[in-house]
Amino acid sequence: MKATLAIQRGALDETPRTESFEVAFEHGQSVLDGLRALRREADPSLAFRFSCINANACKECMMLIDGKVDYACTVRLKEGVTTLAPLPKKALIRDLVTEIAPPDERLWPRP
């Protein structure tokens, strides 16, 4: 099976662009599995956060998946197009990475 991931790319100071990637998957695999495979097979510069990979314990991989805020580690890959974008209400850092650290846990607390 093949999934198409249409991913919003770019840093804060760039015009956002959408890039589409095709990724092969097996039944049950997660969007995060697909993103990690994309880095190995297509574009290692793709930025997204994750830590625990599987357990839905770290909550770092939150992003906009088909327009809905969700975890990349629990949403399954599907055939056809899945759109991925950074969280809309958080400051963008790059690609799918936004500023989600609590302000008092950042190097430079921002207002």
Partner: peptide, 14 residues
């Protein structure tokens, strides 16, 4: 290198 208290093994331990 991760968010505080989110990375590492402890949070994974069930």
């Amino acid at each position: 290198r991760s968010l505080i208290g989110r990375g590492g093994a402890t949070v994974m331990a069930q």
